[in-house]
Nucleic acid binder design. Sequence first.
DNA 1: CGCCAGGTTGTCG
DNA 2: CGACAACATGGC
Length: 271
Amino acid sequence: MICFENITDLDLAQTLDCGQCFRWTEQPDGTFAGVAFGKSVRVQMNDSVFVIDGAEEAERSLWQRYFDLDCDYAAIRSSLSSLHPILKEASEYASGIRILRQEPFEALCTFIISQNNNIPRIKGIVSRLCESFGEKLPDGNYTFPSAERLSALSAGDLAPLRAGFRARYIIDAAKKVSSGEVDLSFCETADYEQARAELMKIVGVGVKVADCTLLFGMHRVDAFPMDVWMKRAMEQLFPGMSPGDFGDYAGVAQQYIFHFSRQHPEIFKSV
DNA sequence: CGCCAGGTTGTCG
DNA sequence: CGACAACATGGC
């Protein structure tokens, strides 16, 4: 068990259920169970103490990084709030969200699956993907399968996942990542347009999936994924503004706005 | 039955 | 370039 004390700006329900990740599930006791880095853990907040059950002290820096605990989100919110009054409102509403540093290949695959899909079904497909092709851990949970493992499969092998037309996209991603044709490490450091183009070599990866992979899998917090919700939000709440107007932390702003919008759908009811 | 879901692709003008 | 249907699947 690992404890982090004096943690602020971390609401697990907001962070783990805001659509940035698909592998965490709330338990009956209010904790969240998930797997990352091949380790199965449970997390909870006790006042300002963040507890990771099932993790070992040697992994402290790993989880610190995963949950982005070194980042001063209050400062980011303060900066974003000055840009627009509605962004200030969204920031305060979603102030417990932190941008996770998920594993790049997992983020890539899960957001390929996300296209033209809804969150509950995305979670189901991802869960079946892990159960079918990941490694079983002692507690019965499964790791996310490696690109190498998936690259040996065909789209037909994924039929039990019920991923539909996305199956062949997953296989294409696995083949290109495992062969090195698509270099995920390069995407972490390359300039933005090059990183995007690298990911878009994969069939089924367009601008939005690439941006989600960069933001949630590589912590490129200047990325600003534009999905249907964000397009509506930009039109109705931030007319005249573009992603570039949100600065170096546009990705954090994006997630605040996304969560705020999803929780207030009545704002977008048609005239 | 039709529409939608954290889109992308191919096609047609 | 811009618009638009098709793509699998499941919930409502």
